[in-house]
């Protein structure tokens, strides 16, 4: 498996506090990687670094063999990096269909959007609506959706964007158990087609979807491996509140 994303020696500090220090991480093409770690371990900051929201003070980021360390956010998106935020951020005043149209950004230039209609029907749109179960709500305003539906809409937007690499920050935050299990199904349908990096706290969800887990601690990689390796790892247990282990975290 060739690496699609390669982080080397990344460092970021906010007012002297090192949120990420000396981070090395590599993600293979088509892989689903889970990032675990206690609050403040630097997980979200890592995603911010990859999508360009935060610039590193040291180190390099390579995406598909290209150095993107200094590349502007919207250009990284055009290269194929999509991001889902922790707080669901959809366009609340637009309809579900319109949200997906914004996400469909194969031609993002001003001149090409001027020549196109506001919402264009196509098979892909139907497919994606079906995938997240929002077909019947296509004309509803995003502000009318439930919390779970809003999360799915944002995931649907990332699928619509068709990014090779999708970064997800706590996709199941605030979801009911039923909603979480539907999200699991969704992820299983995404894997393979997209490379996913998922930050998640919900261990049962991680067990369900993860192939490989990377545990972060104080801005560095603490451990890497499969689900059982990580659950039995002493250092991870230490880092996660004493010895009860992350199974209960």
């Amino acid at each position: 498996m060739s690496a699609i994303l390669d982080l080397k020696g990344l460092e970021v500090s906010f007012d002297g506090f090192k949120a990420v220090s000396g981070l090395d991480l590599s993600v293979g093409e088509g892989e689903l990687l889970c990032l675990l770690g206690a609050n403040g371990a630097g997980k979200s900051t890592t995603l911010d670094l990859i999508c360009g929201k935060t610039l590193p003070t040291a180190g390099t980021i390579r995406f598909r063999d290209r150095d993107i360390t200094e590349v502007h956010e919207f250009r990284r998106a055009r290269l194929g990096i999509g991001r889902k935020f922790q707080v669901p951020t959809v366009f609340r005043e637009l309809t579900v269909e319109q949200n997906l149209e914004v996400a469909r950004s194969e031609y993002p230039g001003v001149l090409s959007t001027l020549r196109r209609l506001g919402v264009r029907r196509c098979d892909r749109l139907e497919e994606v609506l079906e995938l997240v179960g929002l077909t019947s709500k296509r004309r509803a305003q995003a502000s009318e959706l439930s919390h779970g539906e809003t999360q799915w809409l944002e995931i649907a937007m990332l699928v619509m964007q068709d990014s090779q690499l999708i970064l997800m920050d706590e996709p199941t935050a605030g979801m009911t158990i039923a909603e979480t299990s539907r999200t699991c199904e969704l992820f299983n349908r995404l894997r393979g087609r997209h490379t996913l990096v998922v930050v998640e706290h919900d261990m049962s969800f991680v067990r369900e979807i993860a192939e490989r887990i990377t545990v972060m601690h104080q801005g560095q990689v603490l451990a890497e491996g499969g689900v059982t390796d990580i659950e039995n790892n002493e250092a991870v247990r230490e880092a996660y509140l004493g010895s009860r282990g992350i199974a209960h975290a």
């Binding site: 999508c51 956010e73 919207f74 250009r75 998106a77 055009r78 999509g82 991001r83 935020f85 951020t89 959809v90 366009f91 609340r92 005043e93 637009l94 914004v102 996400a103 950004s105 993002p108 230039g109 001003v110 937007m157 964007q161």
Partner: peptide, 12 residues
């Protein structure tokens, strides 16, 4: 509605 979000879809 949300300029940041639009930016991460690749729009300038």
């Amino acid at each position: 509605g949300n300029p940041e979000r639009v930016r991460y879809f690749g729009y300038d």
